[in-house]
Design a protein around this nucleic acid. Sequence first.
DNA 1: AACACCGGCTATGTATACAGAATATGGATG
DNA 2: CATCCATATTCTGTATACATAGCCGGTGTT
Lengths: 239, 239
Amino acid sequence: MAVSQRASDRAYQTLRDEIVQWELRPGSVLGEVEQSTRLGVSRTPLREALTRLMADGLVSSQSGRGLVVTDLSLASIREIFEVRQALEEQAARLAARRGDAAVFQQLEIEFAAVNELLEHDDPARHAYYGLVARLDDAIDTAVGNSYLAAALATLRTHLVRVRRLAVDDPARLSAAAAEHLLIVRAIAARDAELAAHATQVHLHQALRNIQKMANLQTGLQADLLHRASSPSTAAPKGT
Amino acid sequence: MAVSQRASDRAYQTLRDEIVQWELRPGSVLGEVEQSTRLGVSRTPLREALTRLMADGLVSSQSGRGLVVTDLSLASIREIFEVRQALEEQAARLAARRGDAAVFQQLEIEFAAVNELLEHDDPARHAYYGLVARLDDAIDTAVGNSYLAAALATLRTHLVRVRRLAVDDPARLSAAAAEHLLIVRAIAARDAELAAHATQVHLHQALRNIQKMANLQTGLQADLLHRASSPSTAAPKGT
DNA sequence: AACACCGGCTATGTATACAGAATATGGATG
DNA sequence: CATCCATATTCTGTATACATAGCCGGTGTT
């Protein structure tokens, strides 16, 4: 097995996935002994995993008493998007200047045909999000900036957490695909400023959609409790 | 003041300072036993410190065998500045919108009088860089975005490392202070776009200055060896 | 002489034991 | 009945012991 021989890596990835997938909800206390026994590793590698999670901002030490999964309020989502606007605009701009046009032309074709992807029976939208992930990878590669890539990587981790709240709106997904198409076209056409602007538009709409959904519900937090309580199977029971 | 009781914190800060101050040069191999004995802590907290340094991007595991202090080439400095442009422009813009004008008016007064600071006999420019640090803090506070603050914090760590290469130019420091003054004025006047543009100007000039100095020397690397020569510890391994 | 294999060594990765601190709890006293 | 203090428990933080894996050197064989 090439992946994750080290127990600390396994613990880190497991915990990170669980936090990102809302199996470990914000506010959950992560005791060392508790988690180490649960994950089947000793405390030493688990502590290393927790250290890395702290650096990611996924957990934080709650006033000296235990590590807790960080909260994800609507306010913090807005904060994440403020950083995202800055970094992704820059990434799109640089990718337009430096990218391999052929790569983005190929992506352009795929994004143009994304409606077919969305019509397939794919509740988790794996195909769609896989395409978005490939766009992210293509941008990272085109930019060729490890510091920017690292910053975007941690940011995207948080964004997966956000995604669990805002998905399931087919109309929004279709619109988002159209916005992505604009971005990809601009990059393929080597139009840096248009790529930057299109990215801004996309992020603005994405945040607006999240806020709209948050307003529909009577507070975001209340919904999280329901949505995260029924993990993988079945439809959430209507409230 | 609950400062760094934990041995892992002390080890982290010590190592981070040494890396940033070029006492531990790029390429230095950080063996666990070696460093733990040197710093007087056991391997466990030292490993935690190294984990955090890896997350910061100050050390990296060189092909799985041993942790080494990351390189800081001219290319990577350019990469750092690309991220910095994105983040600091956004920070300046948001600070202009949300900041307490009084705070920045006070900073404006101090930056206007910065030439007096520079004339004092202060080879390390502590007073000047202290003022810049207070501006950074004021911006962070004004923005009120923990994700942005965190991203800027790690970035600034790398920038201190860069600073060790590019300082010692009084003319540039004076010009930089003038650029800072423009930024502070724009924020105090609540002019977000001007603050963003002034920040871009400042960063452009700062990078240009670094590149100019790099060109004067016959390659940056050769100079690093001389400037950072602190022969006591950790010469790069090999030979 | 060159290459391959083997043995030892050093380094990391993990587990566990130990110490100190903080908190909760219970009993006693005002 | 409330409050305060003492004690016990449980947690984190640290140290050390142990296992394992990857390199280096040596030696033997081709």
